[in-house]
Simulated scan of single mutants.
Amino acid sequence: MQKIIVAEPMRKIIFLFVLFAFVLTGCSDYQKLLKSNDNSLKYKKAIEYYNAEQYVKAATLFEELLPIYRGTSKAETISYYISYCSYGQGDYISAGYFFRNFLKTFPDSPYSEESLYMSAYCYYLESPKPRLDQTPTTNAIDAMQLYINRYPNSTRISKCNDYIDELQDKLVYKSYLSARNYYDRGHSPSAIIALQNSLKDYPGSSYREDLMFMLLESKHQLAYKSVAGKKRERYNNAKEEYFSFVDEYPESKHMKRAEKMIEDIESYLSKFNTNN
């Protein structure tokens, strides 16, 4: 019998046809399942879809089943799966909401600890770049701390502390960027307020040296540009800031510029020495 040789382009067409037919069959089976009244089968298939990482199909079935099984033991499991379906799709906002809702609905569930952690972790995943609004970052820190307080012996504590440190660093950097923005724009009054707030809110900031120098320079610039009636007071404020900076960072990389500022400050204030 003569062997039939199928050309390569034809093989591709056959493969695509078979694949298309398979997908159509799968979609057809899923549509039939959605229309079915067999809730036990839907529940079984929803778990199968979830395990196969087909989260959209699984979530659709679980959400359809939830009101049907409300008040039964299966409602807890279904709600748990719904939370993870959103997480599996990368929708961390919805996942976090579902995990928090799970905790409210089933506070005594064996999944409570995990759901509290996942709620905090979803906030962590939502945390944006430092230049953006950091509300999710603050929420993540609060949620991680709540988990630590509630489950102090958990194996996740070390990981939570690492996340908190990372999130705190982001808040510190955000504060630094905001203060620096006023400084870079040369708006001394606003820069002084922002820089002082950043130093107050985050006294251990890794940007402390730069913040203190920018505060010194902002106060010096404010004094230099002030009207005559305010110059003396503001130069004295700049002088105090200089000594605070030098006391804390005597070997600072900014020292040359700081020394030039104190020379100008002392030069201006010297004219009042005979009156003191």
Rank of each mutant, 00 (worst) to 15 (best):
R208I: 05
S79F: 06
A143H: 01
E63S: 11
K35R: 14
N153S: 13
T72M: 09
D165S: 15
L24T: 08
E266P: 03
H187T: 12
Q145C: 04
S190W: 03
S73R: 09
A75E: 12
V18Y: 03
L61F: 05
T137K: 00
V172L: 15
Y249E: 02
V23E: 09
K57V: 01
Y124L: 12
S94R: 09
K239A: 08
C27H: 11
R156K: 14
L222H: 02
R131V: 08
C85Q: 09
S218V: 01
Y43Q: 06
N181G: 13
D169A: 04
A58P: 01
G186N: 05
I5M: 07
Y92C: 06
L171Q: 03
A223H: 01
I47V: 12
A140W: 04
A95H: 00
Y43L: 08
P67C: 10
Y235G: 00
E259N: 13
R180P: 01
I78F: 12
Y81W: 15
K159E: 06
L171R: 10
E166F: 08
Y111A: 09
R131L: 05
R100W: 05
F62Q: 04
L116H: 01
N237M: 10
K170A: 09
N153L: 15
S218K: 02
S218T: 07
S270D: 13
E53V: 11
C160S: 10
Y207Q: 11
M144S: 00
P136Y: 03
K239T: 06
P110V: 08
D264A: 07
M1S: 14
F99A: 01
N237P: 02
H220Y: 15
E8L: 10
E8D: 12
V18S: 07
P203E: 05
K200D: 09
M144A: 02
T137E: 04
Q196H: 06
K260W: 02
S190D: 12
K219A: 00
I78L: 14
D264W: 05
S206E: 05
N153P: 07
A140S: 09
S73N: 07
T155I: 12
M144Q: 01
Y147F: 15
I14C: 12
E266D: 12
T25V: 07
A58F: 01
E76Q: 12
N149T: 13
L211Q: 10
N149A: 12
Y43C: 00
G229P: 04
Y249M: 07
S218C: 04
N149S: 15
D184M: 10
Y43D: 08
I5F: 08
C85K: 07
E240I: 07
S73V: 11
